[in-house]
Design a protein around this nucleic acid. Sequence first.
DNA 1: GTCGTTGTAATATTCTTTGTTACAACAAGA
DNA 2: TCTTGTTGTAACAAAGAATATTACAACGAC
Lengths: 147, 147
Amino acid sequence: MQISSRFTLAVHIFACIDTFGSEYKVTSDFLAGSANVNPVIIRKILGQLKGAGLIAVARGTGGTTITKPLDEITFLDIYNAVECVEKGELFHFHENPSTDCPVGRNIHHILDDKLIQIQNALERELAAITLADIKRDTEKYLSEENV
Amino acid sequence: MQISSRFTLAVHIFACIDTFGSEYKVTSDFLAGSANVNPVIIRKILGQLKGAGLIAVARGTGGTTITKPLDEITFLDIYNAVECVEKGELFHFHENPSTDCPVGRNIHHILDDKLIQIQNALERELAAITLADIKRDTEKYLSEENV
DNA sequence: GTCGTTGTAATATTCTTTGTTACAACAAGA
DNA sequence: TCTTGTTGTAACAAAGAATATTACAACGAC
């Protein structure tokens, strides 16, 4: 099971807004062209990012802007914005372990803290990367293209 | 997107084999009863764990045994055995970013190393937990029940 | 040979993701 | 005010993965 491409799409969107936002109006159609996905997918993600307070979208006239300094937007912010897993649980637990079996009725006690520990490690690493890192590398690779 | 319940099921299976294996013959029907899932699901997971060299399953007569010391079987071993994500990639990337857009044709250069870094953190934490930890906590919770 | 079990195929069901069409609501400018 | 380009969203389709279920051949011990 993989983390939805909504996450990489969202980072792609941020890279586009930051790179082109000062020159062009960045619309969902433009972003859909760059990522090569349907514009409605983009609009849904934009809605989630807007709901998380990371971007602003201009109704009517169109166009998208980032509302916070890039070094204050972490991958974890983006992950939480676009991953709509209920209660944010990384692991899917089998639903109804038997209460008749000693192991079955204790498996949650046994496992839950370890699953949380693993999830925390993932989230810690997500929180360590910001859009400022993305900006730096985007500028690096784009300038290397124009040699 | 969540990690398949095959993972928690597999840990549950190991806890059962270790707890009951010396007393009973641990069959797929027994395990299915404890976890409350279909026996065929159990057999598929047993097949994956066997393929990874973690357990042995007796054909014909039935029953399952663990083939390595518990402290040498990590959560990562189990995760790799039962998660059939292609190439083991945690993140799903949108398939065909546009090569016409400078960001689109560089997004993999920009993102890939960061995605690997995050995946490595997850796997490092998975590797830090072993079935010996599970055995310890299983015994603890089961003995607390019999006070 | 009988019995209980495993391995596996085939199929169904459900859920999530992703894609697509359609259209009302909106804001700016002619 | 009308036109234009855009966003927000609903509705639905298509595809893929997870999980459930039935059925049965292969197997090993007795």
